[in-house]
Write a protein that binds this DNA or RNA. Sequence first.
DNA 1: ATTAGATTTAGACTTATTCTAATTATTGTT
DNA 2: AACAATAATTAGAATAAGTCTAAATCTAAT
Lengths: 139, 139
Amino acid sequence: MVVQKKTPGMASQKANLTRQREVVLQVVNETEHHPTAADVFEQAKKRLPTISYATVYNSLRYLKDAGLILEITFGNAASRYDSETRRHDHAVCRHCGKLVDFDLTETVELMRAAARRTRFKPETIHLTLVGLCPDCRSD
Amino acid sequence: MVVQKKTPGMASQKANLTRQREVVLQVVNETEHHPTAADVFEQAKKRLPTISYATVYNSLRYLKDAGLILEITFGNAASRYDSETRRHDHAVCRHCGKLVDFDLTETVELMRAAARRTRFKPETIHLTLVGLCPDCRSD
DNA sequence: ATTAGATTTAGACTTATTCTAATTATTGTT
DNA sequence: AACAATAATTAGAATAAGTCTAAATCTAAT
C-alpha cells in the first residue's frame, strides 16, 4: 500500500472526489446506456447548474485515470462512458447504435494468442461485435 | 450478377475509378504503416498537386464502400486506412502508436459466441490488442 | 488569516471530418 | 461535334468532439 506524505495544498484521496467529479460519476453510474460526454453534461447540469463542459471532460478523465469508469470508443463517434470497469466486451448495433456490454472468458485467451503472434507485450484487448441488435434484426 | 442499365451521365464501373481515386488507392496500397487521411493527402498532392482535402476524404469513403480499402479507428485518434480488406485483427502500441495487422482464426469463432450471448445478428467483429510493440517493450 | 496548490469556469482553440456551392469532367444522345 | 445529364472535384465554410488557457475560486495546511 502506498502512503503519501501530505504537503501544503495537497488534497486527500477522498477530498479529490470533488462535488463535480462526484456528480459526473453518479451520472455515469446511473445512466443505463453508456452516456457520451454531452449526455453527462446535460444530466450533471441538472444537479449542478454551474458545471462547465470542460469540467465534465476533466472529471471524466480523472475518473477514468482513477479506474472508476471506462471510456469506450467506436468508429468516429463520440466516446461513451461505462461504469463497469472490469475488462469486458461490447456489441454495437449498426442500425440504431445501441451499445451493450458482455463478457466472454475466451477473450483473455485470445489476448495471449494475439500477443504471441505479434510479439507485443499485451496489456488489454478490445473486442467489439458489430451487427444488428435484437430490436433491429428483422430476421 | 447485377446488370445496370446505363442512363445518360451514368459512368461505367471502370471510369468511376477516377484519376484522384486511383491515386488515393495507390497511396494507401503503397504506404507501409496505415496512413491517416492527412498522410494520404500529403502523398497524393505529390502526384496530383491540385487534389483537395475533400476529394481525399470522398475518395477514401468511395474506396471503402467499394470494398477496396478498410478504415481503422482506435480511440479518438484520426482514422487510418488499410489496403488489406479481408477481415483481420489489429495490435496498437500504447507507447509509439504503431499499428500492425494480424489474423487469428479464432476471432471468427468468437464472433459466433458473442452473437449467441448478445442475441445480435453478427456482421463483423473487431479485435484490437493494446500493449507495447517489440520496439517499445523494455523487458 | 495566509499561502500554495488544485479545481473550476467560460470561452477560445485545435483537429478531424463533413458540407456547400460553384466549377469542371465525363458520358450518352442527337 | 454539340448538348444535356449526371457525377466528381475544388476551395473554403461549417460542424463536432475534445483540449487548452487564464482568471477566479476553493481547499487544506500552516
